Amino acid sequence: MEEKEREREEEEDIGNGVWSWGAGTEGQLGTNKLKDENFPQFTSFTTKRISYIACGGAHVIALSKNDGKVLTWGRGTSGQLGHGNQNNCLYPLSVNSLESFFISHVSAGWNHSGFVSNDGRVFTCGDGSFGQLGHGDYQSQFLPIQVMKFEDKHVEQIACGMRHTLVLLKGHSANPIYGFGSGKRGQLGVSIDKVRKSCNLPQIVAGFEEVEIANIIANGDQSAALTVDGHLYSWGKGFSGKSDTHHSPESSIPLRFTQVALGWNHALALTDLGKLFILGGKHHGMLSDPQKMSLKKCSSNQSSASIGSKDDSKAPMFREVPGLDGTKVVDIAAGAEHSALVTGRMRIQREKS
């Protein structure tokens, strides 16, 4: 009994903090220092059990899913921390204006933030100069403000890109996905003319009337959606240097995907069998074999157009990530120009004394 109790206490300690490293000159590491760190630094939370974090351009959102509370830190010059000011914050602080809501999902963009409550409301704050807050103007907000377009709807997820935002409604809806903000690279999946390059109110993303969506993803000028049966759709900035896509895709990849991660110029997709594929990603070796520095193409039955073009010669190809033979991948993540993955762990059984 004592051993089990000790293990439980150790698990609680691990869950009460985050590890962070890298650039820290705007407080985004939460260490109370304006300092870059080459090694992971631990930030402890004495009162909150953090279960999810979202990283933006230089700010972080932490969510405690047990009680629906939110903390933020890092760059706050556009109000993206939701603290009511434009100050940077060197350590985690609660977003007090959301204390009366149970927050179930969060997302961090370049300089804006999004929050979804368990009763289906959606709130945004931060930079609004491209309409990415969805309030019908181009003003920045220093406190989370409810997006009233969804007042009579139930929002389940939000995904913040560099200057645009996607919202997913709960359940199988005829129009499940909305987009707002910058759309000049096609990342909103709505028609944008040459004069009007952004939308400051949520617009329906066309093409998903008969599709049930499980997850939405946004990063840079890219957008993606994963269906409940594992099909991937993507739209926005072209992955392979081709012209941008200004509408939602017309076809998907015939592999069953369980996770998707987007960078600025590449996308990762994880299958139900633990195999990892990539779109784009040649420029910085983001998913290249360290020796070969190249990517292996999928066979013809594993690839198809997914960016809304009927011309297969212009469609980017999914490629299997090399160097992972026999290794099962269980989790993936993508930054602007880098990638990370987690492989399957072996369970070590203790011998009974």
Rank of each mutant, 00 (worst) to 15 (best):
A62T: 05
F123Y: 11
R256D: 06
A336M: 09
I103K: 02
S104Q: 09
A315F: 12
K4S: 11
V205E: 05
N16S: 12
G238F: 07
H266A: 03
S113E: 06
E151R: 08
V155P: 04
Q146I: 04
L168A: 04
T77Q: 14
K310V: 03
G238R: 12
V205C: 11
G179T: 05
G344W: 09
F277V: 12
W19C: 15
D193M: 11
N301Y: 12
N38F: 03
A108Y: 09
V190A: 13
H164M: 12
N32W: 04
L324D: 02
L188V: 11
V60S: 02
R163P: 00
E250P: 01
G220T: 03
G57A: 09
K314G: 04
G56F: 06
T245H: 00
A214P: 07
R6T: 06
P316N: 05
G220E: 06
H112A: 02
N96M: 11
I348T: 08
W110Y: 09
A340Q: 12
G84D: 07
A333Q: 06
A261Q: 12
E351R: 11
V228A: 15
S294G: 10
Q28F: 10
R345T: 11
L98G: 03
F130S: 03
K48E: 07
R185I: 04
G27Y: 04
S240V: 07
G79K: 13
H83I: 15
H154P: 02
E99N: 09
S113H: 08
